[in-house]
Amino acid sequence: MKKMKSIIIVCLSLILFSACTTNIVEEKKPVTIATMLDSEGSVLGQIILQVLNANGIKTIDRINFGTPDILRAALENNEVDLVVDYTGSGQYYHPEDATDTSIWNDPVKGYEFTAELDFEKNNIVWLTPSPANNTESIAVRREFSETNNITDMAQLAAYINAGNEFKLIAASSFVENPMGLLGYEEAYGFKLTNDQIIALSSGNTAEMLKALAEKTNGVNASLVYGTDGALDKLDLVVLDDPKHIPPVYLPAPVIRKEVLDMYPEIETLLKPIFESLTLEVLQNLNAQVAYDGKDAAEVARTYLEENNFIQ
């Protein structure tokens, strides 16, 4: 019995010891890439993954890792190394610092503000973002837009104020946000009643678009995101927003400083690719995944090869 115990103790100490030694020897760890649970997350994640792999950087694939808040927490906790995030999200990460909310409507200022604070506070680096603004807008069906002659928010406000039938489907975070629906209502002077809004707890685009396209429950307007691929294919019209109420959301690779120091080439590798991802390009890539049901890895590979980012 005593012998047994001593063997167990030796084993345990060996395990502990080996755990310690592996930490002491600094080897080049693989980069863990994680993205959000949506089609854009799959595409951008695959693009980053394949570019890094093609340039000899080992990676761990955690694409479609989880919801945005989980992803952010994972990055802050060193669970993952490289994520794709949106510049406008800075308003949620550093709410106490952004006294002037107008910076979120400016693509450059919002990016710089978030990048600076994240670097100082969390040792996290925001790399060059894509120029595609994945912002929130309101869209209607083309046939609705034509019969009622509505192409921008002001016309929509007039339509609603005239007492016409209207029903909006949107994420509840958008409905309750002063930079979302509340901001629209104030800026364009209209007010939706509770039974004119269907609020989804998740910002599930595909579900909202489906409801709009199929007129489920009489929905005739929906919250949409700028880079969504299905907008064009489902024959929807995005209403112009001349006052720019919602924040600008540019997708950008976000990486922990320690990892970037280990692989400084990541910055220069990803810069030209993200700069090439304009709104149309990103919409197209997203559509191939969400709408055509193609494999995100293949969509990403085709794009990278066609544009000579990888051979």
Binding site: L37, D38, N64, G66, T67, V80, L209, A290, G293
Partner: peptide, 21 residues
Amino acid sequence: AGLVGGGGLGSIIFLGLSQSA
């Protein structure tokens, strides 16, 4: 577990929900 990065078939289910597929 699919919601908190633990993986598993849940991550496929939630991806399907998010894409309405």
